[in-house]
Computed example of a mutant assay.
Amino acid sequence: MAESFLYREGDLTGVSSSERNGHHSSKFDTLLRQKWDQAMKDGHFRYQLDKVETKIIPGKKKYVAQLNVKRATERRKPQEITIVNQKFDPKQFNFTKIKSEEVLFELEKEETNVLCNGETKKRRTLVIINVSPLEYGHILIVPDCDAFYPQILTQFAIKTGLECMLLSSHRGFKVGFNSLCAFASVNHLHLHAYYLEYDLFVENCPVTHIKGPLYELNAMPCPGFAFQLYKNTTEDLSRDIYKVTQYLSDHEIAHNMFLTYGESFDSQSPEPTVRVYLWPRKKFIGIKEEAAFNVAVVELGGHLPIKVEELYGGLTEDSINETIETAKLEDQEYQSIKDDVAQLFS
């Protein structure tokens, strides 16, 4: 039986202003790293992360490019996905079928145990290794694992992702989500998380206020929505984000979500906060032409795991912008979505 990491609301302290430029470890980080390192040592990954070359691409956006060919060649074959709302299929691979050695621990918050017919029902959230890691500490967070939800965000999943950010005191901790048709490869609800030792442009770039808690990101090649955990709670923020993800799912719009530490949008607070980006984007179905990288969640955030060695050396900011723009919706469609989403906060 997997070890349980029990936490309370008071443990959600995140990164303080004194740590904003450092890489510190909380109890959560320490357990995650120890378990992850041991799993790597014991050979439970498909490859070692010993040949990941990193470079910062010259230009305004300071893209972080990392050569990681094995992630493309040795990862699990993606499931056949055709729609954003594809139903969960118990015959397909899911995260209850993994080896026990791939489970690092269970994540349990005291307050999330719910009463059901007079009995306490435990919500089982697994933290497991990604057997094909893109960076150090790459894990999958599987909220409500035994509920067999398809890869469609629930408010609880969003809140769990936010709380994992706050359980970490490492400035480079990231959480991400790919919807179906946006490079999710397993149709069982899960989030990605990992550590990155390099700063990203989206951590401090400007955003534009739309309405209420809703902002817009236009500083990257693919526009999207932005939220922040600033003067609000994880319950409030997860509810606001869920309004948008539910709209996108209901309207069969592929999307990616990225959580990172960064400056508050108004830059008035010295305390780092959690920024959340949500990109509606073009659907990806089937196999497309070979590119240096797929445009999934971390790539939209400016972190580029490069899968083709021959294309790594010639990367430029312009060529990267061009590739990321392949995920961009047509202006008219994006504007229509933006108008609808703004109405959710009336």
Rank of each mutant, 00 (worst) to 15 (best):
K231E: 09
G302S: 04
N21H: 14
K60R: 14
A193W: 01
V64P: 02
L237N: 00
K61A: 11
S185F: 08
S264H: 06
L180A: 04
L153E: 09
I56L: 14
L31F: 12
K328L: 10
K87D: 15
D340M: 12
I152D: 02
F227S: 00
T30Q: 13
E19R: 13
V276C: 04
N85S: 15
Q66F: 05
A2C: 13
E163C: 08
E252S: 08
N85L: 10
V295T: 10
L140H: 04
T120I: 07
F225Y: 05
Y194S: 11
S249G: 07
K99Y: 13
D331R: 06
Q228E: 15
T245P: 00
D236P: 01
P280G: 11
P90F: 02
K87L: 10
V298A: 14
D331V: 11
L229P: 03
V308E: 13
C164E: 03
F177L: 07
Q34A: 07
A296V: 04
A226C: 08
E216H: 12
N321Q: 10
Y277E: 00
L67Y: 08
K87E: 15
E330W: 02
K282F: 06
N21D: 14
E330C: 02
K91G: 03
S168K: 14
Q335M: 14
Q66P: 03
G161K: 03
Y242E: 08
L140P: 00
H188D: 05
T326Y: 02
G262C: 05
L229G: 11
L107C: 14
A226L: 06
Y136K: 00
S264E: 10
V295F: 04
H190I: 02
K99S: 14
R20G: 00
M1I: 09
G43F: 11
I158C: 00
G314C: 09
D42L: 03
G301H: 06
Q151E: 15
N218W: 06
E289F: 07
G118K: 08
G301S: 13
S185A: 04
I287L: 10
I81C: 09
D266W: 02
N68M: 13
E290R: 15
L196R: 01
L134P: 01
K307M: 07
K97M: 09
T208I: 12
K122S: 12
D50W: 09
N85K: 12
S100N: 14
T326L: 13
V207P: 01
V142E: 11
L315E: 09
D250S: 14
Q246I: 00
Q155P: 04
D266S: 05
E9C: 00
I337C: 05
V308C: 07
S319P: 02
P272F: 03
G314D: 10
P150R: 03
F177D: 05
V274P: 00
G302K: 03
G286H: 06
T54Y: 13
K35N: 03
E53Y: 08
H188M: 08
Q228M: 09
A65I: 11
L12P: 02
P305R: 06
F95H: 04
V52I: 15
V202W: 06
E197Y: 11
A327T: 06
E299N: 12
K211R: 15
E19F: 12
G313N: 03
L304E: 05
E322P: 01
G59I: 10
